Amino acid sequence: MNKFNGSGVALVTPFDKNGAVDFDALKKIVNHVIDEGINYLVVLGTTGETATMTTEEKSKVFASVAEFNNNRVPLVAGIGGNDTLAIAAYIKNFDTNGYEAILSVSPYYNRPTQEGIYQHYKMLAEISPLDLILYNVPGRTASNMSAETICRLAKDFKNIIGVKDACGNFDQFNQIMRDKPEDFLLISGDDPITLPMMAVGASGIISVIGNALPKQVANMVDLCNQGDFKNAIKVHLSLIEFSRLAFLEGNPAGVKAALQYLGICENVLRLPLVKVSSSLESDIIKELKKLN
């Protein structure tokens, strides 16, 4: 599973001033993060504002990123939801061209039991043409996928190869690292805690701030994987303030403000998300200038 060791980026979906998907800007973003050393890309995750996109738009974005990437780095498709049968049908019919795995968020809103979460992923694993990466993000789903459930799935299904975990609970991370199969990946889902997670054995990060600062994120993760935590900590500490600012008024509002300053895409979001405040945007740009 070395292809998903290291730094991944959860790509934003750029929109033009009229609110349509901006495919020219999407190509810029793909080239930007790959050229700066990111190891793999996640397409249409939470950061991609997937909840506000039509099925047709999603299909075009998936196909376009595969074209722009041109097999340079592995691609992961974000396909998840809270209707198991609907997600299973989508995955079964997904055009896998250019993609090597699917990142699927734990069911939200319904608040299933741990057994319900297990059965959800069991169905997906049994029909998926690609490997699966679990996604645990209790702050958005209103339920935590426990370490026991994660490791049970990892042991029962060979094509469930990792978990992106954004629960922030190091007791859970410790338990996953202790009980998981050797080749199962624990991936950070939170930029600010990537380094401490890697210190206990996580393989890397699926990053949001990596859209704007791919070189710095890739460098820090590479240093951790080389065991050079002394220098990795320096990079980690330098990114703390930008990470705080980027998430202060929601994701991906902060990182889109940064991307506009960098000349990569417009600072346009789809409702109910809105731009960050002008004062926060100024702070983000100020910090970005320091880091670049």
Rank of each mutant, 00 (worst) to 15 (best):
164 K>N: 03
152 R>Q: 11
251 N>R: 07
284 I>W: 02
140 R>D: 00
193 I>Y: 10
282 S>Y: 11
91 I>P: 02
238 S>T: 00
177 M>T: 07
227 G>T: 05
52 T>K: 01
260 Q>E: 15
87 I>T: 12
184 F>Q: 00
159 N>I: 13
14 P>V: 06
210 G>V: 05
22 D>N: 14
7 S>W: 01
203 S>M: 06
258 A>E: 04
192 P>D: 10
142 A>N: 15
142 A>Y: 13
100 E>T: 15
241 E>F: 05
216 Q>C: 04
188 S>I: 02
268 V>P: 03
114 Q>H: 07
209 I>S: 14
267 N>Y: 03
87 I>Q: 02
82 N>G: 09
159 N>C: 06
214 P>M: 08
90 Y>T: 15
269 L>H: 00
139 G>K: 10
195 L>P: 07
171 D>C: 06
124 L>A: 05
266 E>P: 04
37 G>Q: 07
123 M>F: 07
280 L>R: 12
37 G>K: 07
275 K>P: 04
164 K>G: 07
282 S>Q: 15
130 L>C: 13
236 H>T: 05
44 L>N: 00
225 N>Q: 06
115 E>K: 15
183 D>I: 01
147 A>I: 12
146 S>T: 14
102 I>D: 02
258 A>Y: 05
160 I>R: 07
170 F>C: 06
234 K>R: 08
226 Q>F: 09
185 L>K: 12
201 G>S: 09
65 V>R: 00
286 K>E: 15
198 M>Q: 15
154 A>Y: 08
142 A>E: 14
256 K>Y: 13
